Computed example of a mutant assay.
Amino acid sequence: MSDLEKKPFVLGLTGSIGMGKSATAAMFSARGVPVHDSDAAVHTLYGPGGAAAQAIGRAFPGTLTPEGGVDRPALREAVLGDAEKLRRLEAIVHPLVGAEARTFLARHADAPLVVLDIPLLFETGGQARCDAVLVVTAPPEVQRARVLARPGMTEAAFDAIRAKQMPDAEKRARADHVIDTSRGFAAAEAEVEALVAGLSAAGSAPAQ
């Protein structure tokens, strides 16, 4: 790429469970910013005919549905508490999600700003693909109340999910931008608006 060519500013968006990341991603989408949702990519990869499904079925027998998609509860049971099995699963899924993200970036090469929505961004090294990282946060008591209000969620499940995620304080320390969603929808909207304006300008500048 020559110095005169432009490329998108790539913003990594992350945050622990219950912090409001999905709502924040929707704010970027509403402003016309292309957003790659890694959770949605995994959902497709896990579906019947998905690129990950057959590989997972071979690695973890009994974890596919009759239709050929991944049986998520069965897979969760198969890897729960087993670090080696979890690493095997990640070795299948993470490269495929990374390939999806690269395709997304190529498809939106002319956009001034794009967002990579990655729940485990720091945990998987995804920040290496980003020009900056936005962490969405909220106080612990707000996070807990939001998560436990979800249907079927238990204290044990919440604690297990948090155990896999980098502590919120460490994420905030490593972030370039932070939005605290506990301050209300309007405040978050205003912060997203400012980021879109500023980072889009950066992405519109010639690449150095």
Rank of each mutant, 00 (worst) to 15 (best):
V97I: 13
V97A: 05
V97R: 03
A99E: 15
A99T: 14
R102P: 07
F104M: 10
L105N: 09
L105H: 06
R107C: 10
A109Q: 13
D110G: 12
A111E: 14
P112Y: 02
D117W: 00
D117L: 02
I118M: 08
L120K: 02
L121N: 01
L121P: 02
F122W: 04
E123A: 04
E123Q: 01
E123F: 02
T124P: 02
T124H: 02
G125S: 05
G126C: 02
G126K: 01
R129Q: 12
L134P: 05
V135G: 06
V135Y: 05
V135S: 09
V136T: 06
A138I: 00
A138N: 02
P139A: 12
P139L: 09
V142E: 14
Q143W: 06
R144D: 05
A149H: 03
R150W: 00
R150Q: 11
P151A: 04
P151F: 02
G152E: 08
T154A: 07
T154W: 02
A156I: 07
A157C: 04
D159V: 11
R162W: 03
A163N: 11
K164W: 00
Q165K: 12
D168E: 14
K171G: 13
R172F: 03
A175S: 07
A175P: 03
D176E: 13
H177G: 06
V178T: 08
I179L: 05
I179H: 05
I179G: 02
S182N: 06
S182R: 07
F185A: 15
F185W: 13
F185C: 12
A186T: 14
A186H: 12
E191F: 05
E191Q: 15
V192S: 05
V192D: 03
E193A: 15
E193D: 15
E193V: 08
A194W: 06
A197Q: 15
G198M: 10
G198Y: 09
L199C: 08
S200N: 14
S200W: 04
A202E: 15
G203Y: 04
S204G: 14
